[in-house]
Design a protein around this nucleic acid. Structure first.
Length: 535
RNA sequence: GUUCACAUAGCUCAAUUGGAUAGAGUGCUUCCCUCCGAAGGAAGAGGUUGCAGGUUCAAGUCCUGUUGUGAACACCA
């Protein structure tokens, strides 16, 4: 409908001989302002130097559309469209026909996205902080797919470098502890429970036969065990990564030297103090950074650049990285590096999410993998529930700093909005289970009160909400929408009986709530929530 | 010190190319089950959008300054 009205306005402008393309048609927040509205006349005041009310009037007189019942011009110059309800009734049949495809669009057709998220180092288990990025990344991937894109969800495993070394040393130290041998935790060691558990397992299986194993052995054990745990909890969280890429494989399969040579040839590197530097300050960063240290080793930046090049070479047209704001300094470096290699820096889009703070009794609890006092994602899923957790974290936009109180979350889990939505869904399922089989209806005569219209309009809106969410890459638009849809249904339900003595009426209403059910399910699927048929 | 985010109802948050009277939930005060699920519905109170300027037909949204909160500023990753 938005496209239709936009075209109507476009044609109207053509007739008036006005050349202007920035036409916006949207749903007004207030009902009395019509089903759809446009601010086009206000936008044209400057260009035409004319009273917006007069411009609006002219545009109105040149619009032809059989869905429009009435057009109102309201000061300061809005054009408000009131539609007849035919399109809403037709949409019921459309929703039922399309089923799980209702809301799908082809906005992103031809695009090949790589969405990289979570990517937590395998030096511990996943915690609360990873839940937010996980929910965002996966929901975004689902939305982009629903909009016709090809999407790969990817996890980057940092299995090389100092941290993994420390992991190996930490496991070894815990193992030695159990053998009552002298042991030292490394300086940046990992103190989490899961590390102790790994050591305990080793001890129970092998007793003291592993004392002569070198550090590589403990590293391997640690990575395998922890990555296994991470994968399992992600699966529980309904995130299925298509690809796990290991840093080691990137290092092994990339010719770093030739990559750095290319950057040099393009004039973006220089030598100073025995090190090789990237001129990142010329590429949008605040300062230059070292690529090769004076001891000849690469800094972390080099494999990271190689990894992103690797993604580009795999044929992705759009790269999305979901990172915490603590990595914000890293964005300019990475995009600059891609530019230095001759790629379009805008192929990479980095989504920064504000970190979640863990709060207990109004006091912040510092979470860290090293100290091991973080709330694990697994614990969160067990205590709060998968649906509630996913809903909770996709409810907010990424840029709100949020506090999370586990005690509170447990206490209020029954008041979580996700239950409001589940309840709507379960209600519909119960009614449908009792009702006669769905039949076609020729005409919708009984769905003519404002409550029914509200429901119908919400259902009708869904495909457009999906488009907005995928265009703006904001999954929380879906979350907010689902709540509104459930709300409109609850109100309708409280005002109207669905199953009555009148068979025709009953069938119309059953079709209405079936459309709601389908829409709810499709929308919730985009944010990884599975509504229950019974509660 | 420099840079980047964030600040909206008592609390948690919406309002996204600048649009119409800033909305929900929660908490508080009331009302509604003879009836398909009351985990629901209806009503009320609650706001100088941190503060001060500016831009314009129009600012929570853009700009400048300022205060507060968080984060980043290694030849660590």
């Amino acid at each position: 409908m938005i496209e239709k009205l936009t075209n109507n306005i476009k044609e109207s402008l053509k007739k008036l001989d006005i050349d202007f393309n920035d036409i916006l048609v949207e749903r007004p927040s207030k009902k009395e302002n019509g089903d759809y509205a446009s601010n086009i006349a206000l936008k044209l005041t400057k260009l035409l130097k004319e009273d917006p009310m007069k411009i609006a009037e002219k545009i109105k007189n040149n619009i032809n559309n059989d869905c429009i019942e009435k057009i109102e011009i309201v000061k300061p110059g809005f054009i408000n469209f009131f539609l007849n309800k035919k399109y809403l009734y037709e949409n019921i049949d459309e929703v039922i026909k399309l089923g799980s495809d209702y809301g799908r669009n082809n906005l992103c057709e031809g695009k090949n996205y790589n969405v990289e998220f979570v990517s937590a180092n395998p030096t511990g288990i996943l915690h609360l902080g990873n839940a937010r990025g996980g929910a965002y990344g996966d929901s975004l991937a689902r939305i982009l797919r629903f909009s016709g894109a090809k999407v790969t969800e990817e996890y980057y495993v940092n299995d090389a470098g100092n941290q993994i070394n420390n992991l190996g040393l930490s496991i070894q130290a815990r193992y030695f502890e159990l053998l009552n041998r002298e042991s030292h935790m490394p300086e940046n060691g990992y103190y989490g429970k899961e590390i102790i558990a790994i050591a305990k397992n080793l001890y129970e299986k092998y007793q003291d036969t592993l004392v002569d194993k070198d550090i590589e052995f403990y590293k391997e054990i640690g990575i395998n065990e922890l990555l296994g745990k991470i994968k399992k909890v992600l699966k529980d969280y309904r995130i299925n990564f298509d690809v796990y890429t290991s840093e080691r494989s990137i290092i092994a399969n990339t010719n770093m030297k030739s990559m750095l040579d290319t950057m040099g040839k393009n004039g973006y590197t220089y030598k100073k103090d025995g090190a090789l530097w990237l001129k990142s300050s010329e590429l949008g960063d605040s300062k230059d950074h070292v690529l090769i240290k004076n001891d000849g080793l690469y800094t972390y930046l080099v494999p990271d650049i190689a990894y992103h090049v690797n993604k580009i070479k795999r044929g992705f047209t759009n790269l999305i990285d979901v990172l915490g704001t603590d990595h914000h300094g890293y964005v300019a470096r990475l995009k600059g590096s891609l530019q230095a290699l001759g790629y379009d820096r805008n192929i990479l889009d980095v989504k920064l999410l504000q970190l979640v703070r863990l709060v207990k009794d109004n006091v912040e609890v510092k979470m860290s993998k090293r100290s091991g006092n973080a709330v694990s994602l697994q614990e969160l899923l067990e205590e709060v529930g998968i649906n509630a957790t996913r809903y909770f974290f996709t409810m907010r936009s990424l840029d709100t700093q949020m506090d999370f109180d586990l005690e509170m979350a447990k206490k209020t889990s029954n008041e979580n909005p996700v239950y409001y939505i589940s309840y709507a869904y379960a209600r519909i399922c119960t009614i449908l289970a009792k009702a006669p089989t769905l039949e076609n209806v020729a005409e919708y005569l009984s769905l003519n009160d404002e409550y029914a219209y509200n429901v119908l309009e919400k259902v009708y809106e869904f495909p457009n909400v999906v488009k907005q969410a995928s265009l703006k890459q904001l999954p929380h638009l879906i979350t907010n929408y689902v709540y509104d849809l459930a709300n409109s249904f609850h109100i309708y339900y409280s005002k109207n009986r669905i199953i009555t003595d009148n068979k025709a009426e009953t069938m119309e209403r059953l079709r209405l709530i079936t459309a709601v059910k389908i829409t709810l399910k499709n929308a919730l699927d985009l944010i990884g929530v599975i509504p229950p048929e019974k509660m």
